[in-house]
């Protein structure tokens, strides 16, 4: 008896090893690609600690300790810039996901193939437009003299507003533009998950007498939980980054409102452009990555404690 189990155990082990190997072989092309495309260039993070000399290359350049990092802290605006970056990201994550989930759920409730198709197509349009062009569109609305919005305000007897010189409007404009541009894309991501939810679960809920709202709460949202957590965790990892186009192009580079438009990326770009200083640029990127990484580790740790299944890793 014991011998038999030992043999079958060995067999099982061998089968198991074989399966692991086959599964691993599946991953190989992607693994090679990620190693080349993502991991190899990480050597470049060394540049953050070097005074980069173009003719000496990465290895030949001199080490310079942390001196590439100091410019990020010496500025008076440091706190302001970090506040902007994190603040906007928090609002974007919160609003973006709430709206996207709502739209995805409603899309699922809709009847009729044709209208569903049209809605899905159209809400994706903003996502297709590049930020530079978005900045033209925003300008078409907000231009003080020829903008659509000011013409509208005037026709109702109001005063023209000088949008591009007043900081107070911009937090709202950024949120609206970000939401407008991104909601179609994330809605469709969520929608793809929603339609994958087992329909028998809804039927069971209906049998139990759950109304529409209860079905959403008890079936749809739990089904979406994994996706939502993934999306949010990923966004947290990018907490210290910002959409450069949104904060630099869309306000038309207007200097007067920089107190609300300057994020880390914008500050670094403005400060280092023309200097070709890749050491300092990498230093900023390095710091953004490390901070994001720590945040995600913490968040993931919390998720893992509560609900291991949905943790990212």
């Amino acid at each position: 008896m014991a011998a038999v189990t030992a043999v079958s155990g060995k067999k099982r082990k061998r089968a198991r090893r074989k399966m692991t190997l086959v599964l691993f072989s599946m991953m190989l092309p992607g693994l090679v690609y990620l190693l080349i495309n993502n991991y190899m260039p990480m050597v470049g993070l060394l540049i953050a600690f070097k005074k980069y000399n173009y003719s000496a290359g990465i290895w030949g350049s001199e080490w310079c300790g942390f001196s590439n990092f100091t410019y990020l802290f010496k500025t008076q605006d440091a706190i302001n810039i970090v506040r902007n970056t994190i603040g906007y990201n928090l609002v974007f994550i919160l609003l973006g996901n709430v709206v996207a989930v709502a739209v995805a759920v409603m899309l699922n409730f809709l009847r009729g193939k044709m209208n569903k198709k049209i809605y899905q197509t159209v809400i994706l349009i903003p996502f297709l437009i590049s930020m530079v062009v978005v900045s033209y569109i925003v300008y078409a609305f907000l231009s003080q003299e020829s903008g659509f919005l000011n013409k509208l305000i005037e026709s109702f007897g109001g005063e023209k507003i000088s949008w591009y010189t007043q900081a107070k409007y911009w937090p709202f404009i950024f949120v609206i533009v970000n939401l407008w541009k991104g909601f179609g894309y994330s809605s469709i991501l969520y929608y793809a998950t929603v339609i994958g939810i087992d329909s028998s679960l809804y039927e069971a809920a209906t049998v139990d007498g759950a109304n529409r709202w209860k079905q959403v709460v008890h079936v749809t949202l739990p089904g979406l939980k994994g996706t939502i957590i993934t999306m949010v965790l990923l966004a947290i990892g990018r907490m210290f980054y910002s959409d450069f186009g949104l904060f630099y192009q869309v306000p038309m580079r207007s200097g007067l409102i920089s107190s609300v438009t300057d994020t880390i990326d914008v500050f670094v770009y403005k400060g280092l452009t023309q200097l070709n200083d890749i050491g300092r640029a990498s230093a900023a990127g390095f710091l953004q990555s490390v901070m994001g990484f720590l945040l995600v580790l913490t968040a993931n740790y919390i998720v893992r404690k509560i609900d291991e299944e949905n943790a990212l890793f």
Partner: peptide, 28 residues
Amino acid sequence: DTSSVVDQYTACINIMDKYYGALMAGTV
């Protein structure tokens, strides 16, 4: 050659960007 004062230089560029254009255009 900015290399001895890059920290100050990057900070000042941002201030310059904020005010130079606005002043030169008469908007403030």
